[in-house]
Design a protein around this nucleic acid. Structure first.
Length: 585
DNA sequence: GCCGTTTTCGGCCCGACTGTTTTCAGTCG
């Protein structure tokens, strides 16, 4: 997608936000129309800049008015409507609107009745007790806003990387499941959709006795502050500033509740619109008849999708990026589930300096999981501290041989994770690495080269005949390190040409390649592998789940994932992988 | 602002929690 399309999306985002303030309603239909248009552009590959008003209008969700604004922006560099809104809502006022508890109506009254135009003035007015003079605003409201302003100073609006949020959610869910009367506890929201970062945590609990659970949660050690405390819903904020919503529903409503709280918001709205077309209504309790109230479906998500005439949509795909249309048409890709995985192709033994489990433990876990193949891929020698020498790999080969004899049902592959140096060079020497069964090549250093240099470097690695797969393509660490800049199409084309696979790295700090990259790679016909990059035996099972979800998020068809193939097919592919077209040099 | 096997006008997803309100508006997700 052209960079200028992103400019239009930013412009529509601002139009939507300011329209909410202007219309004094979060339900502003104008704002929602801008948001829909913004979303529609996600699916557009071509540059909007070259499109006429008429062409733009053919995009669903973009009408005459928005089409003209887009054209106006490209032709004049500005949009008059937006400039007017910016005049009316200068940055200091927009900042005030971001205070939790200050909605569009409160904002308007603060301005019109007290003349407050920025956060500082609001703070002063609270100190002087002026807010209570506004009708409808009392002491509690004043205190709430004061507390919210204090929290703003702590940068509470930062999103939490999925790795940290998931650990927190797992802890909480385990504790909840141990409580009496809790029949299920499901982390929902963007965490369940496996977004890279989450704004807050939504946990749904099935129980007929909500009161003790609410009381337990409000007193939880994670609760730095209790924001809301109701009969079935309690909201806390942790010391790190993460908001957690806990919602208790009756077990019979669990499906509707998890569907509702998993979102995304856009996906839910589409589902409810489909429900209305049937004369039904969908809420967090049930899909039911709008007039009689008779329940159509409620207990599990699958039955609700079925009733609405849709294929089941896995949570990671629920982003309103075409999945509703595909599910209606029955053309969703047959995606991977964790049970489909027949092997793991990226694991580290304790020979790697940063890993902890022995080869024997990892092999035993692979057997326990029923895998048909397993690649042993320690770090190669050029990686400082963590890398493994040629001699160590040779000693490991003997151990692998012995374990192979003892476990004939599991095909062991001798491999390693090669480092791609800035010029595209790789560890060891060509003959040695070509003697291995399975070489991953991945970037572990020099993250700040230019796009051209990174692209050249990767394509050089892809062209090496020993390389079977590119590991964690971007090298990103979510929330810590951005990925490298690459010419994605050029790299994917090289992978298709050589038969080199693209790894879906399942470790939560990475989730690499990212979902949009995967969708692009699917279209190109790239072969994928889902790998756990385990550094401890317990990662093998845990990460595999995340890897399958990441593949779902990227709409990757099962058929295109090599490690869903049974042993004979996989090994056959391995033998011919680099032969049809061969390396390009 | 968008849209149309009911519609070119009149709709546009749904409910919990809070506070101040004596019956509901505002905010949030």
């Amino acid at each position: 997608m052209g960079d200028r399309n992103h400019e239009i999306q930013a412009l529509l985002r601002e139009l939507a936000d300011l329209s909410i303030l202007d219309d004094q309603s979060a339900q502003s239909f104008r704002a929602r129309a801008y948001e829909r248009a913004l979303h529609a552009i996600d699916g557009i590959q071509d540059d909007l800049e070259g499109m006429s008003v008429a062409t733009l209008q053919r995009i669903g969700g973009i009408g005459r008015s928005t089409a003209q604004k887009i054209r106006e922006y490209f032709d004049t560099g500005a949009v008059a409507k937006l400039e007017t809104l910016r005049q009316r809502f200068p940055p200091s006022v927009v900042a005030m609107s971001r205070i939790p508890g200050v909605g569009p109506k409160t904002l308007a009254r603060l301005r019109s009745e007290l003349g407050i135009e920025d956060v500082e003035a609001l703070r002063d007015a609270i100190t002087e007790g002026k807010l209570q003079s506004v009708s409808g605003m009392g002491a509690k409201t004043e205190a709430r806003i004061a507390s919210a302003i204090d929290r703003l100073g702590l940068k509470r609006d930062q999103r939490t990387p999925i790795d940290r949020a998931m650990r927190l959610a797992e802890t909480l869910v385990n504790e909840l499941l141990a409580l009496p009367g809790v029949q299920a506890a499901v982390p929902c929201g963007s965490l369940r959709r496996q977004a890279e970062t989450v704004g807050d945590l939504d946990v749904v609990v099935a129980s007929t006795e909500p009161q003790p659970i609410m009381a337990w949660f409000a007193e939880h050690r994670f609760a730095e502050q209790v924001i809301a405390r109701g009969d079935t819903k309690t909201t806390i904020i942790t010391r790190q500033g993460l908001q957690i919503d806990l919602r208790v529903v009756a077990p019979a409503h669990l499906g509707a509740a998890t569907l509702y709280f998993t979102g995304s918001k856009g996906h839910n709205i589409r589902l409810r619109q489909l429900a209305i077309q049937q004369g039904w209504s969908l809420n967090e309790y049930a899909l039911s008849d709008a007039t009689t109230g008779e329940v159509v479906a409620a207990g599990d998500e699958a039955s609700i999708y079925r009733a609405l005439g849709l294929e089941f949509v896995p949570p990671p795909m629920r982003e309103d990026t075409g999945e509703i249309e595909a599910a209606l048409a029955g053309t969703l890709p047959g995606v991977v589930s964790v049970e489909d995985l027949c092997g793991d192709l990226h694991i580290h033994t304790d020979r790697s300096g940063d890993a902890r489990s022995s080869l024997a433990e990892l092999v035993a876990e692979a057997v326990r999981r029923g895998y048909s193949y397993l690649a042993i891929t320690d770090h190669a020698e050029d990686l400082p501290i963590n890398g493994v020498s040629r001699g160590e790999l040779e000693r490991q080969a003997e151990e692998i041989g012995a374990l192979q004899e003892a476990n004939p049902g599991l095909q062991l592959l001798r491999g390693c994770e090669l480092n791609i140096d800035p010029d595209g060079g790789l560890d060891y020497d060509p003959a040695f690495r070509s003697g291995l069964d399975w070489c991953i090549a991945a970037v572990h250093s020099h993250f700040d080269l230019s796009q051209a240099e990174q692209t050249r470097r990767l394509i050089a690695a892809i062209s090496d005949p020993a390389v079977r797969v590119i590991g964690h393509l971007s090298g990103r660490i979510i929330g810590e390190r951005p990925g490298i800049e690459i010419d994605l199409d050029a790299i994917l084309d090289a992978m298709v040409e050589t038969g080199v696979a693209l790894e879906i790295n399942s470790a939560l700090p990475r989730l690499d390649a990212a979902a949009p990259v995967l969708r692009r790679a699917v279209d190109k016909g790239v072969v994928f592998v889902i790998s756990t990059d385990s550094h401890h035996v317990r990662d093998m099972g845990r990460n595999a789940v995340f890897g399958a979800r990441q593949a779902q998020r990227g709409w990757v068809p099962r058929e295109q994932v090599a490690n869903t193939w049974p042993r004979e097919r996989f090994l056959g592919w391995l033998h011919t992988q680099r032969r049809p077209s061969g390396p390009s040099r």
